[in-house]
Design a protein around this nucleic acid. Sequence first.
DNA 1: TAAATAAATAATAATTGTTACTATTATTAA
DNA 2: TTAATAATAGTAACAATTATTATTTATTTA
Lengths: 136, 136
Amino acid sequence: MRTLKYSRQRESIKEFLSSRTDHPTAVTIYHNLQKVYPNISLGTVYRNLSLLAELGEINRISTEEGGDRFDAVTAPHNHFYCRKCHRLLDLKMNDTAQIMAEASANFGGRIESCTTLFRGVCEDCLGEDSSDVKSK
Amino acid sequence: MRTLKYSRQRESIKEFLSSRTDHPTAVTIYHNLQKVYPNISLGTVYRNLSLLAELGEINRISTEEGGDRFDAVTAPHNHFYCRKCHRLLDLKMNDTAQIMAEASANFGGRIESCTTLFRGVCEDCLGEDSSDVKSK
DNA sequence: TAAATAAATAATAATTGTTACTATTATTAA
DNA sequence: TTAATAATAGTAACAATTATTATTTATTTA
């Protein structure tokens, strides 16, 4: 069995993620850590992000465009993806704990976190009816 | 403004997706359409999948590994991603409609579909405690 | 119905996000 | 403090996706 050894880079990645409420990409994390470790490697960032995600210490969020995003595990949260402008917005819900409970009822595994991805057209894009593609 | 023109390839992609209950990748769709159009291009599949997703006729599902997956828009459904074995399992829930309603309450845009991604450790992996990585 | 227009295609090249490799450095256990 | 081994930086390789281009096909207009 492989045992973990301490690495200050890995600690910094965790620490950086905990300080952010958004969902940075690996490259964003890389750029920020370069301020502390000028010659840190992007591979190191990717390797540690995967490792931390596997350990359940952070979440990996796959988005519909661009690269994966990461955050420190906190509360379940929800996203709205607009199929027009491709933005990923946060979406507040009152009753998220209930979703977890509901899901656990029919499931043998351990549910640790959840993210609901809503899809559709955002408020801004509903306003403009100038679509770039028109279906007849 | 760009107007759509009919394409039999695009129709077939939609039709194929409607016939499946799983979530095929672009490459799977490509291989299946090759039976009908022996020299269809993978680029054509990707282009039409993106277009159909933009029109809201199909869903693009980003997974934590491998490529994106697609399905015809039907009912909301839910996935469980195991951080040990990396499988993407389907997860049945009784009360999905309520999630949509709850979310719409605080949101100005139009919600068309949703997928909840649960994360954790699946039943099989909970059984084995032989983790490949051990944290101290 | 035929010619003009413009979108869609197949084939291929290029790009992007991520992982694998290798020689060196850092951490830990004895 | 030395031996064992994990982690690193730097770089090459990889897979999924997108862009490019010349050609074909669908639609519009005469």
